[in-house]
Simulated assay, not measured.
Amino acid sequence: MKINDILTLYDKILIGFVIILSLILLLIPFYYFGSPAEGEELILKVQQGDELIKTVAVADSYDEPIVFEVEGPIGIHTIEVNQGRVRVQEAPADDPLKICEKTGWVDREGPIIVCVPNSLSLWLESTNSDIDGMSW
């Protein structure tokens, strides 16, 4: 028995419709959350524990990279801001998994770089965003 004997024309149309709808729904978030809107300025916020310790305008990093260090309970993190994106360049040697370093570059609102052993969090915020919250 062949598959063509089981499926009717309407079954094939329904399968095609579901595939096209799935692709459209998969691509919608990239359209709305893909890149910052015009006139929108991103700001890097660095928090250690409950205290916001540093705020950096990401637009300043287009001329030359901004590199700074943050000291925590287990050592020093080196943070790099370059061409509108941010990353943890180097995590302390005492950080067993170095997940915050492996996270890589963040260039938009939403994703957060977290280093649990050093109680360090980095994220980008927009100066004029319509989004007031996000969850993953």
Rank of each mutant, 00 (worst) to 15 (best):
79 I>A: 00
92 P>T: 10
92 P>L: 10
108 R>W: 03
90 E>I: 02
86 V>Y: 02
74 I>M: 14
101 E>C: 03
95 D>R: 05
95 D>T: 13
90 E>F: 07
73 P>I: 15
97 L>V: 13
71 E>C: 02
71 E>S: 10
83 Q>E: 08
102 K>F: 13
78 T>L: 05
93 A>H: 09
111 P>F: 06
75 G>A: 12
111 P>R: 10
95 D>A: 14
104 G>C: 06
111 P>M: 07
71 E>F: 07
104 G>D: 07
76 I>M: 00
93 A>Y: 10
103 T>L: 11
114 V>Y: 13
92 P>W: 12
113 I>D: 04
106 V>Y: 11
85 R>H: 06
93 A>Q: 12
110 G>A: 13
110 G>N: 11
74 I>R: 12
79 I>H: 01
84 G>P: 03
84 G>D: 04
101 E>L: 05
88 V>W: 00
111 P>K: 08
98 K>G: 10
108 R>P: 01
105 W>F: 08
79 I>S: 00
82 N>A: 02
87 R>L: 04
107 D>S: 06
94 D>C: 02
105 W>D: 04
114 V>M: 14
104 G>R: 07
94 D>L: 15
107 D>Q: 05
106 V>C: 04
74 I>Q: 14
83 Q>G: 02
98 K>I: 08
93 A>M: 12
79 I>F: 02
77 H>L: 06
113 I>Y: 02
71 E>Y: 07
78 T>D: 01
90 E>S: 02
103 T>Q: 13
94 D>T: 14
109 E>Q: 10
81 V>I: 11
108 R>I: 08
87 R>W: 09
77 H>N: 10
104 G>L: 05
74 I>F: 15
91 A>C: 13
92 P>M: 11
90 E>P: 00
93 A>V: 11
106 V>Q: 13
110 G>V: 10
98 K>E: 14
105 W>P: 07
105 W>A: 03
87 R>C: 01
82 N>R: 06
81 V>F: 05
